[in-house]
Amino acid sequence: MSLSLENLTCNCDHGSTDEEKYALIGQMIDAYKDKEGSLIQVLHAAQEIYGYLPLELQKFIALRMNKPLSEVNGVVSFYSFFSTKERGEHTIHVCMGTACYVRGAQKLVEALEDKLGVAVGEVTPDKKFTLDVARCIGACGLAPAVMVDNDVHRQVQPSGIDAMLKQY
């Protein structure tokens, strides 16, 4: 239980090579094996360790958890939090909740697309940022809000984008 939560939020080094990462994911799966309905929690942790969930990794998880690949893939493709594509070092989520939308989030997205030269859902060529939009992140009092990794930036204006990105 505590394992999953630590893995979800920690920033520690999860090993550098693919083998190390797979080994770590394997260990984690074994710890979860007897818990009912833990697939989503395993996928969370696996994505935290590996960065994203490519088909190879889904196969590995399916085999190790003794589940059909179709079930694992079905879950991965259902939830927007899981990504099957490689992600940038940092993920920018522009909140598109009602409050942020009303206060100009759409313009902010366009300005970020211009600035980073990528469309929503894509990774910058230097693999530094993934640009994404989010459903309400619950920071409506601070609209328009942008979440970079776990940091929420308040009342971001197109003119403030540079200052925000510089922090990463």
Partner: peptide, 25 residues
Amino acid sequence: IRIGAGAFVCGEETSLMESIEGHRG
């Protein structure tokens, strides 16, 4: 604690239970 994975429909009680069980919500 069970952590969701970004699906609004999981706020609906039967979908939420599906999600806790580790399935598509």
